[in-house]
């Protein structure tokens, strides 16, 4: 009887081990499931984060003229998804505030897309190697890219400095 109890305890411990291992090995994706550059707006004079009002952002050639932002207020950051089937993406920053009515800026990014498998949790996606970029300067003072590779890591990689 005692021996049987020992065996039961032994196999119970093994069963607990199986359940514990299974529980420990299930994880979630801690970053994004696609590689989308994140841009932040900054004041060129104060060099600090700035929120823009009445801002519309869209990509040139987007299907159905879909918008990324539609006349949003208090915008300090925006995701700018790159085209994986092309090596250039263009984004329009449209300022709808009355004092800037009709003024747009266009950010052009040239890059090389490549497929990348990150993990079972995050999956596979396209990453992008930055080649060069340009931007009009109606309201934008300057643009700084803080990374040369865009991955699914959720960090800001583009700083857009705005004129006062």
């Amino acid at each position: 009887m005692g021996k049987i109890l020992n065996y039961i305890a032994f196999f119970a411990a093994a069963a607990i081990l199986i359940v514990a291992v299974q529980a420990c090995n299930t994880g979630d994706c801690l970053d994004n499931k696609s590689s989308v550059p994140l841009a932040g707006f900054y004041s060129s004079s104060a060099k600090s984060s700035q929120s823009l009002d009445s801002l519309t952002v869209f990509g040139i050639g987007a299907p159905g003229d879909s918008l990324i932002l539609d006349n949003e207020s208090s915008v300090s950051k925006v995701y700018l998804p790159l085209r994986s089937s092309a090596t250039t993406s263009k984004f329009v920053l449209q300022y709808n505030k009355s004092s800037f009515n009709g003024v747009n800026d266009t950010l052009t990014v040239n890059y090389t897309p490549y497929p990348y498998f990150v993990s079972a949790e995050c999956g596979a996606m396209y990453n992008f190697d930055l080649k060069d970029f340009s931007c009009t300067t109606h309201r934008v003072d300057s643009v700084v890219f803080t990374a040369t590779k865009f991955t699914n890591v959720d960090v800001e990689s583009i700083k857009i400095f705005m004129k006062e």
Partner: peptide, 23 residues
């Protein structure tokens, strides 16, 4: 690799898991 990080490693298991067991 340039296009991937291995997820399953023979003998190690899933790369993200640190605890494992044997029976």
């Amino acid at each position: 690799n340039y296009n991937s990080s291995p997820w399953y490693i023979p003998g190690y298991g899933a790369r993200g898991s640190r605890v494992y067991g044997t029976f």
